[in-house]
């Protein structure tokens, strides 16, 4: 059977229970939101193939149970993932503090060169906010990880987040492949250039990119 894609990327969503990992995935894969989601038990994944700079990129996105107790099982699925979305809930201080623990968890269980991104979800719930955008940005700078606030409910920055992560991984893969043919541009430059080529959308003004 002919491949229907140029790249297959395995991504992973992790973060505390109830921060909205499944909602983010549902928004991205089905472009829908359901207030009465069920908690994830064990592990599941969804597929979406996107067009990225002329290449078909198949994203296989793994969704995990958030509760710490299940980590011994869920970490078994970290293996082979190329990108990880670290998700916290801007209305839940604890979930933000735990991002550090999740990063440590990644260091212990995922490959060293895995691409990471921090998502501050539920940014539509401004009245309940406990974690400011600035603190999110600060944490991201500290770990040198890209950061964006998202809302699965209002479909804010979800597409952007996955496209960004996918593009970074793709760029890294291509860089490895074309090691003999180095380009003078840095990864960040390339990324920005690509974004400009894509149609500017409303999210561009709201997104935060380091």
């Amino acid at each position: 059977m002919a491949k229907t894609y140029d790249y297959l990327l395995k991504l992973l969503l992790i973060g505390d229970s109830g921060v909205g990992k499944t909602s983010i995935l549902f928004r991205f894969s089905e472009d829908a939101f359901n207030i009465s989601f069920i908690s994830t038990i064990g592990i599941d994944f969804k597929i979406r193939t996107i067009d990225l700079d002329g290449k078909k990129v198949k994203l296989q996105i793994w969704d995990t149970a958030g509760q710490e107790r299940f980590r011994t099982i869920t970490t078994a699925y970290y293996r082979g993932s190329m990108g990880i979305m670290l998700v916290y809930d801007v209305t839940n201080e604890k979930s933000f503090e735990n991002i550090k623990n999740w990063i440590r968890n990644i260091e212990e269980n995922a490959s060293a060169d895995v691409e990471k991104m921090i998502l501050g979800n539920k940014c539509d719930l401004d009245s309940k906010r406990q974690v400011s955008k600035e603190r999110g940005e600060q944490l991201a700078i500290e770990y040198q990880i890209k950061f964006v606030e998202t809302s699965a409910k209002d479909s804010l920055n979800v597409e952007y987040a996955f496209f960004t992560l996918a593009r970074d991984i793709k760029a890294k893969m291509e860089k490895k492949q074309e090691a003999s043919n180095p380009t003078p541009r840095s990864g960040a430059h390339q990324l920005r250039a690509n974004e400009q080529q894509r149609k500017p959308t409303s999210w561009l003004s709201r997104c935060n990119l380091l």
């Binding site: 229970s17 109830g18 009465s36 069920i38 908690s39 509760q67 839940n92």
Partner: peptide, 21 residues
């Protein structure tokens, strides 16, 4: 922590069933 977990999960338990909807 336990209380917060309970709250989160109760709000997403069988909510499609009329009894909990």
């Amino acid at each position: 922590d336990r209380k917060s977990l309970v709250e989160k999960d109760v709000n997403r338990t069988d909510r499609t069933h009329p009894f909990f909807a």
